[in-house]
Design a protein around this nucleic acid. Structure first.
Lengths: 149, 149
DNA sequence: TGACTCATGTCAGCATTCTGACATAAGCTC
DNA sequence: GAGCTTATGTCAGAATGCTGACATGAGTCA
């Protein structure tokens, strides 16, 4: 197993495990969303808009962990397909507040159940205390990464 | 804050937080690797080969969380640039065992220090016990996701 | 041996996301 | 107001990763 090397040991690296968990979660979500003709980024965008109506393109991009250019492409598609609406002109500045249409809301509701079942499955076997602890530890990692970013 | 909706509350979703942590880690690693002309997938491939020489294309793909088609493209580039070698013919079956060249090893060594510093930074403020706990909890999530995948 | 299943390497085409660039608007300082 | 910085929306091109498909080799089982 070549234990005595100078590199990062992937078997015991928390960063590698984090990537592995995230990859498994993403795969499970993509699979769950496929029947609805949706992918993770699309779902994240709709879910963000459901919880915080009027978010701008850039805010949605940050919330879905993609660039604002990528989110712009997605929003144009969602708008064309009638899932969201944006005013033709910015009420203030350049920011275009986006909102779900009834169609978008219906589409989201169907997908939400599937996504929630994936999250429930992921938490199987963990107590409430352990879930809180996982939450706290992940928050700590995020903060540390950002601080000296 | 629209608390009383039926959707997944992103503010308290462990899945969302997992994605956020993974995204922050990836961004930090890409930034750390950029000075060396490397990205995360490239680094993961070299690191895997350093720890387990002779891995095949498919095995590397699984270890780096990409498809074997993507890894194949990467390996062809790494081979062309002289970082890895593969036999012209498979010793057994179709599997082509890949190995680092001295150039590949030197390239990896320079990047490893940068990557390790990112991981150290991420773990800042966590005790050894907490790191073990994080490891255990992530493993649990991965297992649960795979089981009914 | 033959049929079946599974894993592998690889090619081609497509989808998604990114980087680079530009114009514009808001806020802040002098 | 003038100048600077920052943030935004958007377009264009490039990089990256994925799905689909095919041929091939190994293992299993009747």
């Amino acid at each position: 197993m070549s234990q005595d090397n100078a590199g990062v040991d992937l078997e015991t690296s928390l960063g590698y495990l984090l990537k592995e968990a995230s990859s498994a979660l993403r795969a499970a979500m993509e699979e769950a969303l496929r029947p609805f003709g949706m992918n993770v980024t699309r779902y994240a965008c709709l879910e963000l808009l459901a919880q915080r109506p009027g978010l701008s393109n850039s805010e949605l991009a940050r919330g879905a962990f993609v660039t604002r250019q990528s989110m712009n492409v997605l929003l144009q598609a969602l708008e064309r397909e009638g899932y969201v609406t944006r005013p033709a002109e910015a009420p203030v500045g350049k920011v275009l507040p986006t909102r779900l249409t009834p169609l978008g809301r219906r589409s989201l509701e169907k997908a939400t159940a599937a996504v929630r079942s994936v999250e429930v499955r992921m938490l199987t076997g963990m107590t409430g205390t352990e879930q809180s602890e996982a939450f706290r530890l992940l928050r700590s990692m995020i903060r540390s990464l950002r601080d000296a970013g």
